[in-house]
Amino acid sequence: MLPIGVASKAEASNCCIRSVLSNVTGKWRMIIILALEDEPKRFGDIKRCIGDVTQSVLTENLRGLQRDGYLTRTVDPGPPIAVSYGLTPLGQELLEMLKPLVYWSHEQMDQVKAARLSYEREQAK
């Protein structure tokens, strides 16, 4: 079994598996990685691609992905100044790991919907 168990909060903060997974499995971070699949994009293009993310949440998540080495932030001095975000080799590798999960999620949606409906019916009794 993978070493996912910890005995204390201090151990949890030093667990490499938890550290990496907690930073890449958030809803927005995975979607941002997927949005950058084909090419680097400017902030506004990423926001339009995703749709329902606020500017501040997008900014926070882009910074986190950049900090962990999944994205590059490139500034073209212009004029006008243009900032774009692209995947690093590490980000590309993560993308390749996420894609099967995305395809699987899409294929299983009917089954998940049925399970949710069944659960809700049981809870209503």
Results as ranks from 00 to 15, higher is better:
Pro3Met: 10
Ile4Trp: 07
Ile4Ser: 03
Ala7Pro: 11
Ala7Cys: 15
Ala7Trp: 15
Ser8Ala: 07
Ser8Ile: 01
Lys9Trp: 14
Lys9Pro: 12
Ala10Gln: 15
Glu11Tyr: 13
Ala12Asn: 08
Asn14His: 11
Cys15Tyr: 07
Cys16Trp: 12
Ile17Cys: 00
Arg18His: 01
Val20Thr: 09
Leu21Cys: 09
Ser22Leu: 15
Asn23Ala: 14
Lys27Tyr: 00
Trp28Lys: 02
Met30Glu: 01
Met30Gln: 07
Met30Leu: 10
Ile31Ala: 12
Ile32Trp: 02
Ile33Pro: 03
Ile33Ala: 09
Leu34Ser: 10
Leu34Phe: 11
Leu36Tyr: 15
Glu37Ile: 01
Glu37Pro: 05
Asp38Cys: 11
Pro40Gly: 13
Phe43Arg: 01
Phe43Thr: 00
Gly44Glu: 07
Asp45Ile: 08
Asp45Gly: 12
Asp45Cys: 11
Ile46Tyr: 00
Ile46Gly: 00
Lys47Ile: 00
Arg48Val: 04
Cys49Val: 02
Cys49His: 02
Ile50Cys: 04
Val53Leu: 02
Thr54Ser: 03
Thr54His: 00
Ser56Glu: 04
Val57Leu: 14
Val57Glu: 15
Glu60Trp: 10
Glu60Val: 05
Glu60Asp: 15
Asn61Glu: 03
Asn61Lys: 04
Leu65Glu: 00
Leu65Val: 00
Asp68Val: 02
Gly69Ile: 10
Tyr70His: 04
Tyr70Ile: 01
Leu71Val: 03
Leu71Asp: 05
Leu71Thr: 02
Leu71His: 07
Thr72Met: 12
Arg73Asn: 03
Arg73Ile: 05
Thr74Val: 09
Thr74Lys: 12
Val75Pro: 03
Asp76Ser: 07
Gly78Leu: 06
Pro80Lys: 07
Pro80Leu: 08
Ile81Cys: 12
Ala82Cys: 08
Ala82Met: 04
Val83Phe: 04
Ser84Gln: 05
Ser84Glu: 07
Tyr85Ser: 04
Gly86Ser: 09
Gly86Met: 14
Leu87Ala: 07
Leu87Arg: 06
Pro89Trp: 12
Leu90Asn: 13
Leu90Gly: 14
Glu93Leu: 11
Glu93Gln: 14
Leu94Tyr: 04
Leu95Thr: 01
Leu95Ile: 05
Leu95Ala: 07
Glu96Gln: 10
Met97Asp: 10
Leu98Val: 00
Leu98Trp: 02
Lys99Arg: 15
Pro100His: 09
Leu101Asn: 01
Leu101Phe: 02
Leu101Thr: 01
Val102Asn: 11
Val102Ser: 11
Tyr103Gln: 15
Trp104Thr: 09
Ser105Arg: 08
His106Thr: 09
Glu107Cys: 05
Gln108Phe: 13
Lys113Cys: 12
Ala114Met: 04
Ala115Pro: 06
Leu117Gln: 14
Ser118Tyr: 12
Tyr119Thr: 11
Glu120Tyr: 07
Glu120Ile: 05
Arg121Asp: 13
Arg121Glu: 14
Glu122Cys: 15
Gln123Thr: 10
Ala124Pro: 14
Ala124Val: 13
Ala124Met: 15
